[in-house]
Amino acid sequence: MTVDRRWQISLRVLALGYLALLLLVPVALIFYRTFEHGVGAVWDSITTPAAIHAFQLTLEVTAIAVPLNTLFGIVMAVALARGEWRGKGLVNAVIDLPFAISPVVIGLSLILVYGTRGWLGGALADAGVQVIFSVPGIVLATIFVSLPFVVREVTPVLKEVGDEQEQAAATLGAGGWTTFRRITLPSIRWGVAYGVVLSVARCIGEFGAVSVVSGKIAGQTETLTLLVEKRFGNFDLAGAYAASALLALIALATLLAMTAIPGRSPDDLRPSGTVSRRRFATRDVRRSIAAPSHRVRRPASTIRRHTTRAHRETDPPRREEGDT
């Protein structure tokens, strides 16, 4: 469908205008408002002891949640992509839940289990462990909300790569662990990296669930996002903007990292229509909830995207049907 020039431009203006009003102007404004009173004030407000502690706590929580979810994500992705086992459909559905549930409900659910009147709260209190209104609660909430990212990134990549290379490694004498380390892991590394980037962003930015379980004790259980809210509530607008700008910078770095990961470069985004779908694996995170079977079979041409054009002719797309 070839849209004529006039239409093309009006559609473009409409789309970009919508984006500008909703996205670009607001974000630009954070930085403007942040720096309108000078850099010194900003520096002062992000180096107060409370701010430094909030930053440290946020990083600590992220440093616990992301590795755990990454490990879980890789193991689960291999099981989902390579195995047939009972309960797989159910597990697949449960993994998506953190994407679909309100963060406030997530926070509440943790209170109901680990709070003083929760299922395990009494026993934990007797053992001297406080979860709710304490750092362990924040960690649990953060793990919960960021749990699906790595699984959802890695599973489609594993399916796309297929298991032929792993089989080849087995016929060459490589054992299970060697095959995983030398064949499987290298082929999913960018998928893992992408999932990790998304997880980090989510962990740093989580607000709702953490806000319910943290108790917001300054210098103890206050994360960066909670600091923003508290400063706003205390009419310290400049301070809230400064902390927000810091978070927005982290978000922009996230976008940069997402763009920099190979196979995801927007170079792939040409209006031609013959281009890889891999760039969208993250959108497929959401899509995967939507259409788990959509992406299972992809033409191998997307896998061998880096094949030089000269060699393409001798390499017709893989046949789907496959003999017995």
Binding site: L19, V27, G205, E229, L247, A251, T282
Partner: peptide, 12 residues
């Protein structure tokens, strides 16, 4: 930039 709302903390 389309992904910005995913990357930006909701409170911000």
């Amino acid at each position: 930039l389309i992904d910005l709302p995913f990357a930006l903390p909701t409170i911000v």
